[in-house]
Design a protein around this nucleic acid. Structure first.
Lengths: 296, 296
DNA sequence: AGCATGAACTTTATCCATAAAAAACAACTT
DNA sequence: AAGTTGTTTTTTATGGATAAAGTTCATGCT
């Protein structure tokens, strides 16, 4: 049966808004709420119905008002707000990156389905989606081959990344002064400075910033294939570093400094300087990844 | 129910071998046949069983010998040797490229499933696979969006293609003289010359040659992401030009000439000359595609 | 021991069913 | 006329079943 994670997440969001007093003075209409949460009206109605049933909202003459205080027990647990497909993704990535899954291992849909407690269909859909990452390969009628999160993989990935990033950085720097992206870049530079100051406590915040930065650079001259490729990077790094936290602080600190130099180079509009800064940053990112691969 | 296309294709292959006298002097063992056709022994046995039933093969004391002559009726029709997934692909591509499917159209899994006569699952798997081509986009819980086989798409595609091809061509040219790829390149040049001579009758053979050429260039310094990207190009071009045959002969003739110049440039090992030839060829390929888009 | 066939078992490709979510339609209200 | 809510219809996400194809085990023959 389809999970009701959409409803549960919507419910939690609404309950939180209620708790934080974002909905004082009567509840918004179904349609407004719908837009607010980004979900269909059908789901909103289900949420509302449950809120009423739990007396978090009361209705009189068709008018909804805030009811009793929301308490911690009212929210559904996080696990129930994640769709199956996402669970499969997480479990697979863990199986692949944390287990000692060797390159050359063959992947068995049925076995994974049993292991993860889902139907084979879900596994297969995930594998098809995942195959674009270059880590697995389908052999028809037979199964999938895990090619390994190897040094080769990282090298090939970074080769492309460098090509794309150099291209995007140069195009970015050639934008007219009037482009709004320049001020976004300046804002990002400030955010970097802030983070650097509080690096001791906030060093995990870097990955979000990193993402914003690289996506901003691509924004100047969009290319869907480059965007897609950046999705791969984001995905891989997300899971890889989720389980490889050694030196996280130093790693991020170094990267922030490189970013700032890179931003300065962009602002200078000097092509050679940009190339140097960009390459320096990516070389260091690659070295970091390589190191973590060897350790692992 | 799963289709028995694997069996039927294997049967046809075996029957053809029988007809062409490739199996005179007694049939090979199940295992040998299996290797020959590239299919499991289970399937081979099924083929053998049917061959015997139809008296194309006769068994005496457990020894198999060639039986009656194979005639045209013995083979299964082509449509029955193509798996469902492939049919879906073909029908979808036709729907997308030939129908007047407009950019922005939303794609309905259920509707396509009905239209193509398959289960929704198959449609979905295809769409997931296809999404990497940058022409459709998934919106969770809602469906897919067709972004259009537009000019933008072609431009973005070619931008990447140029980057990749320049990189691969330069790396190719820097190979040591001892690399076996040089002789492969020479052979390919000859094949081009041959084709050019018989262009009147054989101009459809170009696309195979084109593929071999570009794949050869990538072979010198493999990168899985570049290979994957080339798969996209191959796929798109295959279907697009399947239904856009205007000027096919001239188009191919021009391309052959460009290829030869490109090969000469590679053999000269002169980086600038390579860049010029490569860019010239790709610019012309792009222009051709663009023209066919406008016409369509 | 090494290869051929036979039989049993496992996995993939494919269809079908259904609750949840979205979308479309209808009726009311201000 | 535009925004509400109620109802119905359609579509997606997910599980389940099964024939075909692949793989492994067993037996027998040189």
């Amino acid at each position: 049966m389809r999970t009701d994670t959409v409803y549960k997440k919507a419910f939690n969001r609404t309950a939180t808004m209620l708790r934080d007093g974002q909905l004082v003075g009567g509840l918004p209409s179904e349609n407004e709420l719908r837009r607010l949460i980004g979900v269909s009206r059908t789901t909103v109605r289900k949420v509302l119905q449950e809120l009423v049933r739990r007396e978090l909202v009361t209705v009189r003459n068709g008018i909804r008002t805030v009811g009793r205080e929301v308490d911690g027990n009212d929210c559904y647990p996080d696990a129930e707000t994640t769709p199956r497909a996402k669970h499969v993704e997480q479990q697979f990535m863990e199986w692949m990156l944390r287990g000692d899954t060797r390159p050359g291992t063959s992947i068995n849909e049925l076995e994974l389905a049993r292991q993860f407690g889902v139907a084979t269909n879900g596994i297969r859909e995930f594998l098809i989606r995942f195959s674009r990452f270059g880590l697995i390969e389908k052999r028809p009628n037979t199964g999938w081959l895990f090619k390994g999160f190897t040094e080769d993989f990282a090298l090939e990935l970074f080769e492309i990344r460098v090509m794309f990033e150099l291209r995007s950085a140069q195009l970015f720097s050639r934008q007219p002064d009037s482009s709004p992206l320049w001020s976004k870049l300046a804002a990002l530079k400030m955010a970097h400075a802030d983070l650097l100051e509080q690096i001791e406590s906030r060093f995990h915040d870097f990955s979000g910033l990193d993402n914003r930065f690289h996506r901003l650079i691509n924004e100047a001259s969009p290319n869907r294939f480059i965007d897609d490729f950046y999705d791969i990077i984001t995905f891989i790094f997300h899971y890889h570093y989720q389980w490889n936290k050694q030196d996280e602080k130093q790693r991020n600190q170094a990267a922030i400094i490189e970013h700032v130099a890179y931003i300065d180079a962009l602002e200078s509009r000097d092509p050679e300087r940009i190339e140097r800064a960009c390459k320096a940053h990516l070389a260091s990112a690659r070295a970091t990844l390589m190191r973590s691969l060897i350790w692992a």
